[in-house]
Structure formats: C-alpha cells, structure tokens
C-alpha cells in the first residue's frame, strides 16, 4: 500500500512540490515574526499555488498554446490556467506591495519589523 502510494506520488510529483512549497510558506508565516519574512512566506505560498495551476495544465508531449495553423497533430497544453495565473501573479505582487507598504509604516511608527516586539496591539 505504501508502495502504491509512493508510486502514485511519483506520478504526481508536481503536486508534491506544490504541497511542500505551500507548507513552507505557511510555516514561514507562522514561525517568523519578522514582517518581511512573513511576506516572503506569503510569496512562496502564492507561487506554490501558481505552480499547481501551471502543472495541471501541462500535458505529456504538449506544446504551448499558440496555434500553429495546419499543424493538426499538435497537443496543446491547457491555456486557461495560464491565463488565470497571469492575473494571479499580478494580484500577488499587488498584495506584496501593500504588505510591504504596511511594513514600512509599521517600522516608522514602532521602530521594529518584528511582530512580537510591537507593544500593546492585541487582537
């Protein structure tokens, strides 16, 4: 059973990567109190999601979804996730920008970028 699981995972190594990277990102967010580190973690988390989309679009022996007229035997990869991810990348960057802006402001106000050193702000 374990063997079949391993075999199944080897066949889906892309997803394994997604899970691992995603969890590294989440772990960073939890374990690091540095605000910038948290954003780095967030970035890793986001790219993991992107990877998920891109890898699921891929096909064995496929080509990029740029139609070549006449070439009927070509297998194109799924273009839709690519489109979606173009949006997601931009969204991620914007989030990062806002987060970093907040970090800068926090540093200006509190003189630290470590969350555990910020006094008196409890949830």
């Amino acid at each position: 059973m374990i063997e079949s699981l391993i075999e199944s995972l080897l066949l889906r190594y892309n997803y394994v990567m997604v899970v691992v990277l995603m969890l590294i990102g989440i772990y960073a967010i939890i374990a690091k109190s540095n605000l910038i580190k948290k954003i780095i973690g967030l970035n890793i988390f986001q790219t993991a999601i992107l990877l998920f989309y891109i890898s699921m679009a891929d096909v064995v022996g496929g080509t990029a979804p740029i139609i070549e007229e006449g070439a009927t035997d070509l297998v194109y990869v799924n273009p839709l996730p690519h489109t979606l991810m173009l949006t997601a990348i931009v969204v991620g960057v914007c989030t990062t920008a806002v987060g970093l802006a907040l970090t800068v402001r926090i540093y200006e106000n509190y003189g630290t970028i470590h969350e555990d050193e910020i006094p008196g702000v409890e949830a």
Binding site: I26, I29, I30, S33, K38, E115, D116, E122, A123
Partner: peptide, 16 residues
C-alpha cells in the same frame, strides 16, 4: 495577566 499573544502568528496557526 495576558494569556499568550493573539497576533498574526497565532491567527495563521489557527487557520492551519
């Protein structure tokens, strides 16, 4: 007395 810190750290941990 305060019982632990309720910040983004614990927030995300709770999410997890």
């Amino acid at each position: 007395v305060r019982a632990g810190r309720w910040d983004s750290q614990s927030g995300v941990l709770l999410i997890a």
